[in-house]
Design a protein around this nucleic acid. Structure first.
Ligand SMILES: [Mn+2]
Ligand SMILES: [Mn+2]
Ligand SMILES: [Zn+2]
Ligand SMILES: [Zn+2]
Lengths: 147, 147
DNA sequence: TTACTATATAATAATTATTACTATTTGTCA
DNA sequence: TGACAAATAGTAATAATTATTATATAGTAA
């Protein structure tokens, strides 16, 4: 893993906040720093619990709003739980998905090329892998037009 | 998309139910059939709403339990919302994820090979794609041992 | 067919996660 | 140093997930 440079990341954070007229508050700084040092992809509540060590009065709502503004600033990614609720698929055959980040549609597509993408040897050894999933994200035809 | 053969799928469904000693109830049949014909990766609640047309007295709980038993039978996949809560990642650099289906840890890994996986031309044209995400699923080192 | 029994169900409650609201506080800048 | 837009804490509301329990039913064997 390319070691995440916290100094550099914070510099970009300050820049982006300024660009967007977002105030530099201790809450915002601590939340982003906590996320920068986390390697376990925490939930809002986990971030909240951790930041409370430094800022005992911080509210859940602040962590919630901040996580989302960081996402909008493209400083953090969501790796799970985009759309709120769990979604099911009875098509267990080989196919792949595109997710619209606006309307949360998940659209199937075929790709021989993606079907053939392999699972690296060293990961096979390390984990007991049962599935490989490729997801493209962006804006669907309708949502692209509106924007 | 390889056209999903409902006949064939139902045959396998009956087989698997029998194997596991699961009773063939109208609820189970309707729920699976509804999922088989859906192409939009519905949530539990969406499945519930749709199945109500055929079985007005069905309960949400039944849909919930059935969706999970179908998942365990590997007749349906979860395509979103594995772990319940939303998870964040401040590492926006190129890297990939492994998800443990048991303990829900999401573990980073590097792969030059996966970094180089491209986005098919025709999808680029169709959608406004901003990200490509590869997720491997299975059981982590600890969870593999216990099993 | 009928009676039995383990499993599944409906109805509902409990829990957990997400999002919204508002009075007060604070960072920014003139 | 004010003025004031933006952010925050505290809390409420909503939505999603999971658990509970009394009743009903599918499957089986007499
Ligand atoms: Mn699909
Ligand atoms: Mn990551
Ligand atoms: Zn869309
Ligand atoms: Zn695990």
């Amino acid at each position: 893993m390319k070691k995440l440079n916290v100094e550099e990341a914070m510099k970009i954070f300050y820049q982006k906040c300024e660009e967007r007229g977002l105030k530099i508050t201790p809450q915002r700084v601590f939340i982003y720093q906590e996320l920068l040092q986390a390697t376990d992809h925490p939930s809002i509540d986990e971030i909240y619990q951790r930041v409370k060590d430094s800022l005992p009065n911080i509210s859940f709502d602040t962590v919630y709003r901040t996580a989302f503004s960081l996402t909008e600033m493209k400083l953090v990614d969501i790796v799970e739980g985009h759309s709120g609720s769990r979604r099911f698929d009875a098509n267990t055959g080989p196919h792949h998905h595109f997710r619209c980040l606006k309307c949360h549609k998940i659209i199937d597509f075929d790709s021989d090329y993606y079907d053939k993408v392999i699972i690296p040897e060293e990961l096979q050894r390390k984990f007991n892998i049962v599935a490989k999933k490729i997801m493209l994200e962006g804006f669907c035809e309708e949502c692209s037009q509106i924007e």
